[in-house]
Amino acid sequence: MADRREVEFVDTPEEVDRAYRAQLKLAATYGIVFFVSVLLIPFLSGSAEWWYGKPIWGGFTLNYLVVAILFHVFYVILAYFFVKQANALEDKLLGGEEEVRKND
């Protein structure tokens, strides 16, 4: 008798293609947010005095506060939400066919 579990766990090309497109959209969206943020920092450092030259809290300029503390918090939160969404997408879009087979 064939091992039932061996037969059940399959991805169809259509499922994988759907999952790939959804994951690409998700990764690209987060990627754009990340790279725009990263490049915005040196852009402002070279062009906006309110950003790099005006202390807002003790010795902190906005530039210093963002680079030394806030940006680290930002990218950890960004990655956390990305992983949560990416894992949920996978669970939702892949493995549907095997459910049908289980019901057979």
Partner: peptide, 11 residues
């Protein structure tokens, strides 16, 4: 593509 973006093996 099935290998990179599929999860059957892991499931």
């Amino acid at each position: 593509w099935m290998r990179i973006h599929g999860t059957a093996k892991e499931r």
